[in-house]
């Protein structure tokens, strides 16, 4: 059984992470849409820290002999989910980046063309 001390420590650590995430959002360093995953993950950990027996209940239900392994499983699960989410975000940004680079390059070409035309007209006016 968990001692009270380690339980309090676990809750404190989770709260710290949540406050850190919220402060990042407040400073506009983290967008809300990307914070959800982190918040859900840390809330899940808090639930396990507060409700001590949950781990044992789940372990018995799914037939895991060593209950803390469940905790590790949950953490890895959220970690993988967050990684997946991040790669989706990167893929989208790569695409947007590409589209923007193409648009800028095409516009630059157009501007060059227009500048040359304008120059020609100014020379003709003189």
């Amino acid at each position: 059984m968990m001692s009270l001390r380690i339980q309090l420590l676990a809750i404190a650590a989770c709260l710290l992470i949540i406050f850190f995430i919220i402060s990042l959002i407040r400073k506009r360093k983290l967008r809300e849409e990307y914070s959800i995953m982190w918040l859900i993950g840390s809330l899940a950990l808090i639930v396990f820290a507060v409700w001590r027996d949950l781990l044992d209940i789940i372990a018995k239900a799914v037939g895991v002999f060593y209950a803390p392994a469940i905790l590790l499983l949950v953490i890895i699960f959220f970690g993988v989910l967050i990684f997946l989410h991040i790669t989706v975000v990167i893929s989208r940004q790569t695409d947007q980046n590409k589209d923007m680079a193409q648009e800028i390059s095409l516009l630059k070409n157009k501007i060059e063309l227009l500048t040359e035309k304008l120059k020609g007209r100014e020379d003709a006016d003189r």
């Binding site: 980046n97 590409k98 680079a101 193409q102 800028i104 390059s105 095409l106 630059k108 070409n109």
Partner: peptide, 25 residues
């Protein structure tokens, strides 16, 4: 001749697509 200088390196796919966008426009 017309040259479109890509502002970042996009690879063959991105380069060809830029030309296709030019053709469309």
């Amino acid at each position: 001749e017309t040259v479109i200088n890509l502002v970042i390196n996009l690879g063959i796919g991105g380069a060809v697509q830029t030309g296709l966008k030019y053709a469309r426009d």
